[in-house]
Design a binder for these strands. Structure first.
Lengths: 340, 340
DNA sequence: GATAAGTGGGACATAATATGTCTATGCGGG
DNA sequence: CCCGCATAGACATATTATGTCCCACTTATC
């Protein structure tokens, strides 16, 4: 069942931030009273004029008192603040976590949806929805979007809607075959995304184990070459992050490589790169398409991964991720990440 | 303890109406789908453009689907609407009741605060606050405010604040002594109101039982005459409504009059006028100052009365009240009034 | 199959509101 | 007595909301 807050988030999405803003103001006034607008404005990171409008409102509501020595809480304001404190911890816990997480990981933005996809399967849908919203907000007009495989990406594909497609989008798989089963292959997911958004997609199929000669001739193929050019000029990359061992086992990894991965204590995987806890690449699936170093040239990089079990993998990967990365994750993973 | 809603009402007072508006739109779409903007706009009493902005928002949130045949709810929208229905009944019950009540009583506006002042004494404070807000909203600049006595009015006086007093206010008692004890006398309340708002007040003291000659000479007194002129030119009247028997007993009413009041089945009292259930004046305390007929010439008339026990008295009085009256009451009384 | 009524969506002037910026003025402590 | 910090006023400018018309399209009905 939806809670009142959940409903309000949907029906009045701005409400939350206004509430937080006003709560923050009350909170600080309570802390520093009596205090002037200027010092409050810098403390809160608001411009003076904005703060002033808010302060006028709060005065209107008799929540604060204004005198020539500064602002202070009225007794009503104190009562309200006390009641608010509990609520805000609950409500804006997520927003606070988003801030903390993006700072901790050194990335552009963290988006957290509530729940834990390890425990509740429907949280993956929420991850998908959040990712879709993020794509919508960041992309304008014509775009090439490079996508990797994985069950999380499949969930994202599922949540895309045609109303995003007023923009002109082209989905391309980020890298050639890195051996997932068909359902969660990048090619399949691209197709599904294109289908859900009424847009186009390309396929990139490179067999896994081929001779060097074969490989050379494949990438000379004009079709393939074109796709690779498109991949390199993508304006957005959408990728998942996996647990190293799980991914290695799920893929048709050779006994030798599997041993190598395990021995190097790899914990995270993304794009076919395997990372240890220090963020070092300990193994890499040789294939064509996007390489790790290419990421820094791409405008929008969105990493999607949820579930507390993926925390280690996320941490490891994020040590190498470009700082422009946006992480979409869930509460379960976020809490774990902030603990570590 | 404050509930989330109460806090939000204080911290984001506009939120409630936006929520109601959006709820109403979803509700109607659910009812009439598929439906177009124009017919929806007239059904909801919104202009087409406003509705359109809202609809665009709802579409953005994936709560409704828009096709060439009209708008309909998405499955998300249906879920949300269902959850909203329960909440809105709770939240906006009051707003709905306000509408119903003002229509039923044939008055300009009804303002309802939650609770029942018969059961919870602090509801009187809420009545006071609501009345103060109403005064603030309706009065600009220089004003004369005529006030009656009673415990409810005393509560209003208690809740007035100096920040209302940027306006230039003068409080006058509406009528000469109608025999309440000092604490709840109009004179005392005027003084308290003036004190709380840093404004001025006048007194009007007319002894209860005096000879005709004495009376005549009193009202020739220049001071008294001036006050009476001010009363008649008041721009706002603030008055309570009482239960007839209670009021009669509380006042030093003669045995004869008391009998008359009881025999005539008076149920309501206001201004020293006693009304039966049909709204007929069955008895009147003879005194100088505002008369019942004067009310219709006064711009703002605010009646304040709460508690389910006062429902009958309110009904009775409202049959004679000018249609410009604003009633400030509580949930307890309102429910009772709407039942009858 | 023509027609009329209803649909969403585009365009644009205008009103209302929010914001940035600068200034006047008052108060209290050193 | 003056300096620094305080509020509050004023005003130009961005931004957003709203009112008003119009157009192209679908659909149900005759």
């Amino acid at each position: 069942m939806y809670s009142l807050i959940d409903i309000q988030k949907r029906l009045l999405p701005d409400m939350l931030e206004v509430m937080q803003k006003r709560y923050g103001i009350l909170h600080y006034i309570g802390l520093m009273e009596p205090v002037g607008r200027r010092s409050l404005a810098v403390s809160l990171g608001l411009t003076e004029r904005v703060l002033r409008s808010e302060v006028e409102f709060l005065k209107e509501q008799n929540l604060i008192r204004i005198s020539s020595t500064g602002m202070s809480l009225s007794s009503d304001g104190k009562d309200l603040l006390e009641a608010l404190e509990g609520i805000m911890r609950e409500i804006s816990g997520i927003a606070v976590m988003e801030q903390a997480l993006s700072r901790k990981l050194g990335i552009r933005q963290a988006i957290i949806v509530s729940g834990n996809s390890d425990e509740s399967p429907w949280v993956k849908q929420e991850l998908g929805r959040a990712t879709a919203m993020c794509m919508k907000a960041r992309l304008k007009g014509k775009n090439i979007i490079a996508v990797t495989g994985g069950s999380t990406m499949a969930a994202v594909a599922e949540m895309l809607t045609p109303d995003l497609a007023e923009r002109d989008w082209l989905f391309v798989p980020a890298r050639g075959g890195i051996g997932e089963d068909v359902k969660n292959q990048a090619n399949t997911i691209c197709a599904k995304m294109a289908d859900h958004t009424d847009s186009r997609h390309r396929v990139l199929y490179v067999p896994d184990q081929v001779s060097k000669e074969m490989y050379e001739s494949i990438i000379k193929e004009p079709n393939i070459k074109e796709v690779i050019t498109q991949i390199k000029s993508a304006s957005m990359v959408l990728h998942g992050i996996g647990d190293a061992i799980t991914m290695a086992e799920r893929r048709k990894t050779s006994e030798e490589d599997l041993e190598k991965i395990k021995h190097a204590k790899a914990v995270g995987e993304s794009f076919g790169y395997y990372f240890n806890e220090g963020g070092e690449v300990v193994h890499k699936v040789q294939t064509i398409g996007l390489q790790l170093d290419d990421l820094s040239h791409i405008e929008h990089v969105i990493a999607v991964a949820g579930g507390s079990s993926k925390a280690k993998a996320i941490t490891a990967y994020m040590k190498r991720a470009p700082s422009s990365t946006i992480l979409v994750t869930d509460e379960g993973a976020a809490k774990q990440l902030l603990k570590g």
